[in-house]
Structures are given as structure tokens and as C-alpha cells.
């Protein structure tokens, strides 16, 4: 069942809430992150349509959430100091407003003032050219640095970035990246130079299993029935410190109807 976006709403943000409580997702652990996200979006929209309010103002994005989401309960189960909260932002533009919107929306949704880490996965669509990726990441990085200076983010990092690009950003950056994320498929064959660089600079070399494009156009169309533009997608992960327990996981997705 395709979702019909209200004509008047130009922007829509979908908050899946805590998907660890969605049994239908837990029961399909073999799904890749895109499949998982699509299913979470479908469940969220369905739940919202069954009782949510579709009215919205033109200026404000329509926010879609689940009625039965236990995100705030989950967050309240623990002292904030016992939690380690991480965000990963999937973004394809260096428009500063996009990143700020993503981070602010995450802070309000989780009802927090700061997070432990933020990792950026920068991926442009093929047809938009590959010019000066480093320059664009630097633009984004400046926004992240200001959050880090304000102590709203403790560690900042980059995902799926060429070793040389990572080094040049590292050398240039004021607040250095402390995390680099590589695809799980390559975790047994990390280039020794990258390994040495991470070791020498105490950069965490972490794995992920995300596809290049977290929410491709075809998936957007299957969920919404029409083509919308993905501004950004964000995954939040909440861990209980030192216990290896993941307590909350979810996605925020921002789309525009242009």
C-alpha cells in the first residue's frame, strides 16, 4: 500500500522509532540495512495512517512516527550517563542545512543534548558528478567541528572514504576524525598503510554493513508510490556502556516533494 503524501506538505520526516521492538524486523535478521529501513518505513507509515494526523503546515515538515513506539521509554530505562549514543548520517549534498536538520532532529527525537559519535557517509548520485568530493566533505566537516567544539558530539568520523582522502582531511581538519568506517566485506584485508595510520593516530577502524546508497530511488518509490528527493537519512544506535548491549536502534529519513 503506497503512502499518499499530502499535497500541501513539501517536506516529510519519518522517524521509525526503536526498531528493536519490531518483531517482524527482528525475525528477519538476514535483511540488509536498505531492506530493514524500507520495512521500518512501511511499518511506521502504516501505523501512522491508522490513526495519525495528516494535517500539516506548509512551512513545517510533516513528521511521521509510530503510535506504539517505545523509544522514549527505552531511553528512560537508563541513566543518560550509562548510554553510548552513536549517529550515522547518510548524506549526498554538502548543504549545511541538511546536516544541521539531521542532527537537530536526532537530538530532539532522542531527547538528548549530545551524542558520543557521529559518522558521515557521503555519497553523491552518479549523475551529479564526482567533482571535489574532498571539498564537499570538508564543508560538512566544518559543521561537525562546530558541534564537536560545543561538546555536542564527542567523536566524529567518516565512512567509506579512500585512504588518501581520509589522510588529507585528517591533516586539514581542526577537530580530527577519530573514526573511519570500512565495509565489513573488507575487514580481513585492510591495507597495512591504513592500519598503521589508524594505529599511529589512535583512529578507530570500525566496520559497517551498509550499502553505498542506503535508500535508493527505487526503494523510495516502492514506499511512497511517487518519487521524492532524499535529503538525508540517519541511523541512531543506543548502547549500554560496557555491557555490549544494544538497547535502541532506529532511523530518521528526510524527504522533499520537489
Amino acid at each position: 500500500m503506497a503512502f499518499k503524501l499530502n499535497e500541501s506538505a513539501k517536506n516529510v520526516i519519518i522517524n521509525t522509532g526503536n526498531i528493536l521492538s519490531l518483531n517482524d524486523i527482528t525475525k528477519k535478521p538476514g535483511q540488509n540495512p536498505t531492506e530493514e529501513l524500507v520495512e521500518a518505513l512501511n511499518i511506521t507509515i502504516k501505523d501512522f495512517q491508522n490513526g495519525g494526523n495528516l494535517q500539516s503546515h506548509v512551512e513545517q515538515p510533516l513528521v511521521i512516527t509510530r503510535r506504539h513506539d517505545d523509544l522514549s521509554n527505552k531511553m528512560a530505562e537508563h541513566e543518560i550517563g550509562d548510554l553510548k549514543i552513536g549517529l550515522k548520517v547518510f548524506i549526498g549534498s554538502d548543504n549545511e542545512q541538511y546536516l544541521i536538520e539531521a542532527l537537530e532532529k536526532a537530538f530532539t527525537s532522542l531527547n538528548i543534548n549530545s551524542v558520543h559519535n557521529v559518522i558521515i557517509a557521503y555519497h553523491e548520485k552518479q549523475n551529479e558528478g564526482q567533482n571535489d568530493i574532498i571539498g564537499k566533505i570538508k564543508n560538512i566537516w566544518k559543521t561537525l567541528e562546530s558541534y564537536a567544539r560545543d561538546k555536542k558530539i564527542f567523536q566524529i568520523g567518516l565512512s567509506d572514504i579512500e585512504e588518501n582522502a581520509f589522510r588529507s582531511i585528517y591533516d586539514w581538519a581542526d577537530v580530527k576524525p577519530s573514526i573511519i568506517q570500512i565495509n565489513l566485506a573488507t575487514c580481513c584485508v585492510v591495507p597495512p598503510t591504513l592500519q598503521a595510520f589508524c594505529k599511529d593516530n589512535e583512529v578507530q577502524l570500525l566496520t559497517h554493513s551498509d550499502p553505498n546508497e542506503i535508500l535508493p530511488e527505487s526503494s523510495i518509490e516502492s514506499v511512497f508510490g511517487i518519487q521524492l528527493k532524499l535529503k538525508w537519512a540517519l541511523r541512531f544506535l543506543v548502547h549500554i556502556k560496557c555491557r555490549g548491549v544494544l538497547t535502541t536502534k532506529g532511523y530518521l529519513v528526510s524527504l522533499s516533494n520537489v
Binding site: T26, K28, P29, T207
Partner: peptide, 23 residues
Amino acid sequence: FPGLIPLINSYLSGMDVDADTHC
């Protein structure tokens, strides 16, 4: 039935795991 190993892999995808450990 989801299987214990697929569940572990799904869990790991939500954790900060360093490359060597994950390997």
C-alpha cells in the same frame, strides 16, 4: 526461524566493532 548466527550478525551491524575483531 531466524537462526542464531544471523541474529548475531544483525546485532553486530548495530555495534561499533573494530575491523580486526570483526574479521
